[in-house]
Amino acid sequence: MNALKLIAVALAVAIGLSGCSSKFKTYNGPEVTHVVVNKTARRMYLLHHDRVLEDYKFDLGFAPTGHKTERGDGRTPEGTYLIDRRNPNSKFHLSIGISYPNVADRMQALAQKKDPGGDIFIHGQPNDDKGRKSPDWTAGCIAVRDRDIEWIYAMVKNGTPITIQP
């Protein structure tokens, strides 16, 4: 009987610990009403109205200054967008999508006869560990540590505005 209890306790501990390692967190705090990204300071702020709930460091695209204007330019867009999708099976741990390009971005690109690009995300590190070569290594996304994207993914809901500042 003691051996059976020992096995049951060991199994319960193993199940409990496996839950701790999940990349899917549960957040029950104040609603994130806005995400603000300051590219120069390399800080992302999750806000509940005017109160900062969390802030994170990040890496940018390989051309970190200026507004994204075309596919492949390595820039991160600037302006106000929405968090519009999430990818639990991302090749970058987890990712949440930014609604770039908006109408103005498309019109600007069209006027220049260029493709504005897309697929801009806040994401974690590459799952294959091959993407990061320098502090600015993405193709225009905002990259955070894996443990940070786990909390951002849990806290920020689709439809949340995101303002990306130079």
Rank of each mutant, 00 (worst) to 15 (best):
R132M: 13
P64G: 05
D73L: 08
G118L: 04
V156G: 00
N89S: 12
G118A: 12
M44D: 00
R86E: 12
G118I: 09
R147A: 15
G16N: 11
K25L: 07
D55I: 02
P30T: 12
V32W: 01
G19A: 15
E150V: 04
P77Y: 09
N38W: 10
D148H: 10
M1Y: 09
Y56T: 01
D148E: 12
G16T: 11
L60P: 03
I164S: 02
D84P: 01
G124F: 02
P116S: 13
V32R: 00
D119V: 04
R75Q: 12
L82T: 10
D84Y: 06
K133T: 04
A41V: 03
L82P: 03
N89Q: 12
Y45N: 01
V37N: 05
Y153M: 08
A12W: 07
T65R: 15
E150M: 11
V36N: 02
V13Y: 06
K68P: 08
A63F: 09
V32C: 06
V32I: 15
P101T: 12
R43E: 15
D105H: 07
A63I: 10
H49R: 12
R85P: 05
M1S: 15
I15M: 14
D73V: 07
G117D: 07
K130Q: 12
S22L: 14
M44W: 03
P126Y: 01
Y56V: 01
Y56S: 02
Q108E: 14
D55K: 08
L94P: 03
K130H: 11
V36P: 00
E70L: 09
G74L: 05
G118N: 03
T138K: 11
E150R: 14
R42S: 11
G79A: 06
E150C: 08
R51N: 03
V36T: 02
V13L: 14
H123R: 05
F58Q: 02
A14R: 11
K57F: 09
K113V: 10
R147T: 13
